[in-house]
């Protein structure tokens, strides 16, 4: 009987200790394994640096593994990360579909996964939370900026094109979806071509040059959407090389960007680019990610999806407001 009492007391004490330790749990001392794309990419590099700084300041230890946009390698890194048994895996999914099996293994191993930068489609129940851009809205806003710019130039009909990131999956298809759906309600605008530059500015520059040559006989393009500012900057350079004037007047090319990067702000100020967007912003996104992860470790419920806020069009009217947060 004494043994039974001792056992019950020990169990109760252990349960209480466990409960108390959970109640006082927080981000301090937690180990994060952080999986991203290549840090040669300016956005990923800035995001990684800021995220590591902020997570470390919150008392967490971050081990980063990068992959050169290689979904199979990332899936293997996820398995390696599971083997390290961290408190959480923070993941920039390089392929939404290819990470799903490994996410299932992480769940089976009891390791929570927090997704950043891009989303995992059909990831319900497999990820603890996501911090990313509302990509469809981003595409819609790019189209709105394009419409505003053309209307401001007095255009009543226009031929436009888009040069995109990897269209196979992930971010770019969602932005294209938003871009196309918004333009669909403007029948005076004709979307004549969408080309995949795989997020590579040199490829974007080459494609832009080919587009200029192709449409020159038909009066040229009125506007060109580069899916991020690095690509819109490539379009600007291609236009400069081809002697095409930039702007929204007749005979000029209107350039629309996105992604809130230094080159976008610089080109807008120089009058070479009409607009960019206020997201994604590494400064905001990393801060929010670390807050959400800290909340998770503190036992709070975090939303399944969090997005960059505010997400708005940046033109000459508000470049000063975003000059600092978009400085990367």
């Amino acid at each position: 009987m004494t043994r039974l009492k001792t056992l019950i007391l020990a169990t109760a004490l252990a349960s209480t200790t466990g409960f108390l330790s959970f109640a006082h749990a927080g981000p301090e001392g937690k180990k994060l394994t952080f999986l991203t794309g290549p840090t040669e990419d300016r956005f990923i590099s800035t995001f990684s640096t800021l995220f590591t700084e902020k997570a470390t300041a919150a008392g967490m230890a971050v081990t980063q593994l990068t992959s050169p946009f290689d979904p199979a390698l990332q899936a293997q890194q996820l398995d390696d990360a599971i083997g390290q048994k961290p408190d959480m895996i923070v993941l920039q999914p390089l392929s939404s579909g290819a990470v799903l099996p490994a996410l299932g293994r992480a769940k089976a191993a009891g390791i929570p996964v927090f997704v950043v930068i891009s989303q995992v489609d059909k990831g319900e129940g497999l990820v603890a939370g996501t911090m990313a851009l509302d990509e469809v809205r981003s595409g819609e806003l790019a189209a709105e900026a394009l419409i505003d710019g053309l209307k401001a130039g007095g255009k009543s009909s226009a031929k436009v094109a888009a040069i995109t990131g990897s269209a196979a999956e992930g971010i770019a298809p969602k932005r294209i979806q938003g871009f196309k759906s918004r333009l669909a309600s403007e029948p005076w605008i004709q979307l004549v071509q969408i080309e995949d530059a795989n997020w590579a500015p040199p490829v974007a520059e080459q494609i832009a040059g080919q587009m200029f040559a192709r449409y020159s006989a038909e009066g040229g393009l009125d506007a060109l959407y580069g899916m991020n500012d690095a690509m819109s900057n490539a379009i600007v350079e291609a236009a400069d090389s081809a002697g095409i004037e930039l702007g929204n007047q007749t005979g000029q090319l209107l350039v629309i960007g996105g992604g809130c990067q230094t080159s976008g702000i610089r080109n807008i100020k120089a009058g070479k680019q009409y607009s960019t967007l206020s997201g994604p912003r590494p400064l905001y996104d990393t801060q929010k990610s670390v807050e959400l992860i800290s909340d998770y470790f503190s036992g709070k419920t975090i939303p399944a999806m969090s997005v960059t806020e505010p997400l708005e069009i940046i033109t000459t009217k508000n470049t000063d407001q975003y000059a600092e947060p978009c400085n990367y």
């Binding site: 979904p71 199979a72 899936a75 392929s95 579909g97 099996p101 990897s166 196979a168 999956e169 795989n198």
Partner: peptide
């Protein structure tokens, strides 16, 4: 088998 294991086929190749 890699494609089946990752449950997705990508034209850009799944790995280097």
């Amino acid at each position: 088998f890699l494609t089946y294991g990752l449950s997705v086929a990508s034209p850009s190749g799944l790995t280097d």
